[in-house]
Every structure is written in structure tokens, then in C-alpha cells.
Computed example of a mutant assay.
Amino acid sequence: MSEEQTEKIRSVLKEKLVKALDDGFVKFISSFTGNVDRAFAEIVLDLKKDHPEIQMLAVIPYRNKLNRMKEQEDIKALLDSCDDITVLKEDYQPSIYIERNRYLAEHSDRAIIVYDGREKGATVNMIRQIHRRHKEMQEIPVGLEIRL
């Protein structure tokens, strides 16, 4: 993903997070899995400076993943700023990311999804989890160009 596209995603993500805050949402959850999840957390934690009622929650699939994440200074700083960290399992299991998505869907009222249209993978699984639970979903579609 290009730097320009990443900045566009961050901009739209911030708009959606500000809107969520305006709509009364104050608890935000991230799995910190990839760049978008980290950008989400960074934006939420930045908004928290002016809105101390915001809570940032991290959901990490298994303990060793958390330990490896804490070895990276930038991610460790984000995790240390979270109000709570939930570790779903002590050890890795093949189905752990499906379980993580299920947990995220169950504990969310609104999901903000950055989606590139792929029909396989964690993001499409997350979308299915959200739909199964009839939760609100806001999509940020990406591809060659962001379609707003």
C-alpha cells in the first residue's frame, strides 16, 4: 500500500472515529494486528487527549503474540496506553483468529472495516461475523483508489 493511500485511509478512519464519538461511542477495540488496526488505535488514543472519557481496549489472540508485540517500542507504547488488554488464549491455536473476530463482533456495536474486496482472509471473516450478529458496519473500501 502506498504512503498516499495509507494517509487517505487514516484520514477517512479519523472521520469515522470522530463521527462515532459524536454518536456517543466511547469504547473502542483494536486487535493491533496490522497497520490499519494500529492506525485505528493511534487515532483513538490521540482523540483521547481531548476526550478523556474514551476507552481504548486491545484484544490480542494469544499470549506469545502479545509478548512479541511488546518487543516493538511503538506498539508497546500504544498497548501501554490502552485501558484494558484482553488476551484470548494462552497458546496459539489454528482457529484463534476466527475466535478473535468472533470476540470483536460480539463486543462491538459498530465496526469500522477497511476492506479491499478479497473474498478470503481475516477481514472478510470479520465482515461475516458482524453480519451474523446484525451489528452496524461502516466500510472504508480500498483498492487502487479509495472509493468514498
Score class of each variant (00 low, 15 high):
Cys82Pro: 11
Ser108Asn: 09
Leu66Ser: 14
Leu21Ser: 01
Glu15Asp: 13
Met1Ser: 14
Gly117Glu: 02
Ile98Gln: 10
Tyr92Glu: 11
Lys49Cys: 06
Asn125Ile: 07
Glu136Phe: 04
Ile113Asp: 01
Lys8Trp: 02
Leu57Asp: 13
Pro61Glu: 01
Arg63Leu: 08
Val142Asn: 02
Glu139Asp: 01
Val44Phe: 03
Ile54Phe: 01
Arg102Glu: 14
Ile130Ser: 04
Val26Asn: 09
Gly121Phe: 12
Asn125Lys: 06
Leu57Glu: 15
Gln93Arg: 09
Glu42Ser: 15
Tyr115Pro: 03
Tyr62Gln: 06
Arg110Val: 14
Ser2Ala: 07
Glu90Val: 07
Val12Trp: 06
Asp116Glu: 07
Ile43Glu: 10
Asp74Thr: 04
Glu53Leu: 08
Ala20His: 04
Met126Trp: 05
Ala122Cys: 05
Ile60Thr: 03
Pro61Arg: 01
Leu148Phe: 05
Lys135Arg: 14
Arg102Thr: 14
Lys120Glu: 15
Ser95His: 08
Ile96Ala: 06
Asp116Gly: 13
Glu7Gly: 10
Arg147Glu: 14
Met56Phe: 01
Ile29Val: 15
Arg128Leu: 10
Lys120Phe: 12
Glu71Gln: 12
Ser108Met: 07
Met137Val: 15
Ile29Gly: 11
Gly121His: 09
Val124Asn: 08
Pro61Leu: 00
Ala58Val: 01
Asp22Gln: 12
Val114His: 09
Ala77Arg: 02
Ile60Leu: 02
Leu13Asp: 08
Tyr115Phe: 14
Val12Asn: 02
Val114Ala: 10
Met69Val: 02
Lys16Arg: 15
Glu99Trp: 01
Asp109Arg: 00
Arg63Ile: 01
Leu17Gln: 06
Ser108Arg: 01
Lys89Leu: 03
Lys14Ile: 00
Leu148Ile: 00
Val124Pro: 10
Ser31Asp: 12
Asp109Glu: 10
Lys16Met: 08
Lys135Glu: 11
Lys76Gly: 09
Pro141Ser: 08
Thr86Leu: 09
Lys8Leu: 05
Pro141Arg: 05
Ser108Tyr: 05
Gln93Pro: 01
Glu106Tyr: 00
Ile98Thr: 12
Leu21Gln: 00
Ile29Cys: 13
Lys65Met: 14
Asn35Phe: 03
Ile127Met: 10
Asp116Ile: 02
Tyr97Asn: 06
Val59Met: 04
Asp91Met: 04
Leu13Ser: 05
Arg110Phe: 03
Pro52Ala: 05
Ala41Gly: 08
Thr6Met: 03
Glu99Pro: 09
Leu45Tyr: 07
Cys82Gln: 07
Gly117Met: 06
Glu139Ser: 03
Lys89Thr: 02
Val59Thr: 10
Tyr92Asp: 11
Asn125Phe: 03
Glu139Lys: 05
Leu79Tyr: 04
Ile75Gln: 04
Phe40Val: 04
Leu78Glu: 12
Thr86Ala: 09
Gln138Asn: 10
Val12Ser: 02
Glu136Tyr: 02
Gln129Ala: 15
Ser108Gly: 12
Val44Lys: 08
Arg133Ser: 12
Arg110Met: 07
Val26Phe: 08
Arg132Met: 15
Ser95Ile: 09
Arg102Gly: 13
Glu53Trp: 00
Phe28Pro: 09
Val12Pro: 00
